[in-house]
Design a binder for these strands. Structure first.
Length: 129
DNA sequence: CTCTTGACCACTC
DNA sequence: AGAGTGGCCAAGA
């Protein structure tokens, strides 16, 4: 947390940089939610901030950040229909299954920022075609 | 400083 | 299951 003497501009820049840093850590073929990204970036409850940060995002895997649509489901939440289509394409290109309604199963594709080895997960179907 | 906006989220019907 | 509501945080006008 910034002390009262901390430069406010530096602080806000740090927030966005933190968000981008988190997004860059999301591995290919996995997805995270805005809320998850925000929390990892040090902004608990700041899901909307993460969304705002994604809007102007460039040179980072922004397509891997989705809205939370249920306990174990995420979905394309982007407003612009064109951008939504692009996101779907990018995700499918890296092996993420997106339903017709734009939903993704977090149990299968959700990113778990594990520091240690994750338990052996056995995909029920071939991860790669 | 107040008010509005937003690629959010959880809770209720 | 889908729609409505209120709350959340930070940015920008």
């Amino acid at each position: 947390m910034p002390s009262s003497g901390d430069d406010l501009v530096a602080h806000t820049q740090r927030l966005y940089r933190a968000i981008y840093a988190v997004v860059r850590r999301i591995p290919r073929g996995k997805v995270a939610t805005y809320g998850q990204v925000a929390e990892l970036a040090g902004i608990p409850g700041g899901a909307r901030v993460a969304g705002a940060a994604m809007r102007g995002a460039s040179d980072l895997p922004w397509q891997r950040v989705l809205g939370k649509r249920g306990p174990s489901r995420a979905g394309i939440q982007i407003h612009d229909p064109v951008g939504a289509a692009v996101q779907r394409k990018l995700l499918e290109d890296e092996g993420v299954e997106v339903s017709d309604r734009g939903l993704i199963d977090l149990n299968r594709f959700g990113w778990i920022p594990t520091t240690r080895a994750r338990p052996p997960r056995r995909p029920r179907r071939s991860p790669i075609s």
